Lab assay of single mutants.
Amino acid sequence: DESNKPILLPNESQSFERSVQLLDQIPSYDTHKIAVLYVGEGQSNSELAILSNEHGSYRYTEFLTGLGRLIELKDCQPDKVYLGGLDVCGEDGQFTYCWHDDIMQAVFHIATLMPTKDVDKHRCDKKRHLGNDFVSIVYNDSGEDFKLGTIKGQFNFVHVIVTPLDYECNLVSLQCRKDMEGLVDTSVAKIVSDRNLPFVARQMALHANMASQVHHSRSNPTDIYPSKWIARLRHIKRLRQRICEEAAYSNPSLPLVHPPSHSKAPAQTPAEPTPGYEVGQRKRLISSVEDFTE
């Protein structure tokens, strides 16, 4: 099969070098950035008060330690540790928490760990991170309901609301924008112990962030949302095809390698009803078989 044979790379090609550099910018793992907010007593309706908090309760602090690993920003190499735009020179604080497994990295933009500057009256330095995160974990210690939209931002799609209760338990629920209701189930609340709260809140936030990324990708319907490693695979396959075309153009005697095509017509299947918005969006999480067989 010609399409699977190794090909020689061009010795000097600026377009090839640019493509390789672009490939280096696509990590081999999925990345997520999640905002974390603490809401104190009497702050449920005040964005400024929430963003001005420099610490929270003892249970909130224990919750943070379970979310991930504490890292010092100045020691991080952005090409190895995903920071979601946090500055490593102290502009966004000294520490944050991050978490990773074999296929993804997540960083938490924690408002109480970011510096509260006197010259920044409206807390814009914090909002440029927190307001651009799709998902926020809100530790609501106010005793009042927290409403979506209290923290203004164009991309605040989903809130994971943590409400501490007695007996070391917590109520965990989801809020989302109306255009996200087909992807996020907000109907079920959970009672979770303090011990298990970081794991549950983190998983709910990661799932909500993946759904938000799919939702946000609708602005470019021709580019369905893939995982990062599938995006790398697609980029490599496009690069291979372009090299083959350039080689055939410079030397017409060489065969032009095309991806294999299936001449056999697909079997006719009964027509199915058109899937609704929710089903269609969830299918976009699934990769096409052509990603692996071309």
Results as ranks from 00 to 15, higher is better:
D1I: 14
N4L: 05
L8H: 09
N11I: 10
N11A: 10
N11E: 13
F16M: 10
E17S: 08
E17N: 11
R18M: 08
Q21W: 05
L23M: 05
D24G: 04
D24S: 04
D24A: 05
Q25P: 05
K33D: 14
V36K: 00
V36F: 00
L37T: 02
E41L: 08
S44N: 08
N45T: 10
N45S: 10
S46R: 04
E47Q: 03
E47G: 02
I50A: 03
N53M: 01
H55V: 12
S57L: 01
S57R: 01
S57T: 03
Y60C: 00
T61L: 08
E62L: 04
E62S: 07
G68Y: 03
L70Q: 09
I71D: 11
I71E: 08
I71T: 09
L73A: 14
Q77D: 14
D79L: 04
L83E: 14
L86Q: 15
D87S: 13
D92R: 10
D92Y: 07
G93E: 09
F95V: 05
T96L: 09
T96M: 09
C98S: 06
C98K: 07
D101G: 02
I103V: 08
A106C: 14
I110S: 03
A111L: 03
D118Q: 11
V119T: 13
V119A: 11
D120L: 09
H122F: 13
R123Q: 13
K126R: 05
H129I: 14
F134H: 03
I137S: 00
Y139M: 00
N140A: 00
N140Q: 00
S142N: 01
E144P: 01
D145P: 08
L148N: 11
G149F: 03
T150G: 03
T150L: 04
I151T: 03
G153T: 04
Q154W: 10
Q154K: 15
F155Q: 14
F155G: 15
F155Y: 11
F155A: 11
V158P: 01
H159W: 15
V160A: 01
I161R: 01
T163A: 04
Y167A: 04
E168G: 09
C169Q: 09
L171I: 08
L171W: 03
L171A: 05
S173K: 10
L174D: 00
C176G: 02
K178H: 11
D179I: 04
G182Q: 10
T186Q: 09
S187P: 06
A189S: 10
K190M: 15
N196E: 02
L197H: 00
P198Q: 00
P198V: 01
P198Y: 00
R202G: 08
M204Q: 03
L206G: 00
H207Y: 08
A208H: 03
M210E: 01
S212F: 04
R218E: 10
S219P: 03
I224N: 08
S227K: 08
K228I: 09
W229N: 12
R232A: 08
L239Y: 11
R242Q: 15
R242K: 12
C244L: 10
E245Q: 09
E246V: 07
A247I: 11
A248H: 08
L254E: 15
L256A: 15
H258V: 13
P259V: 09
P260F: 11
S261P: 11
A265K: 13
Q268L: 10
Q268P: 11
T269A: 09
T269C: 11
E272Y: 07
E272I: 09
P275W: 07
G276N: 10
G276P: 13
Y277R: 15
Y277I: 11
E278C: 09
E278F: 06
Q281T: 13
Q281W: 07
K283Y: 08
L285G: 12
F292E: 15
F292W: 10
E294D: 12
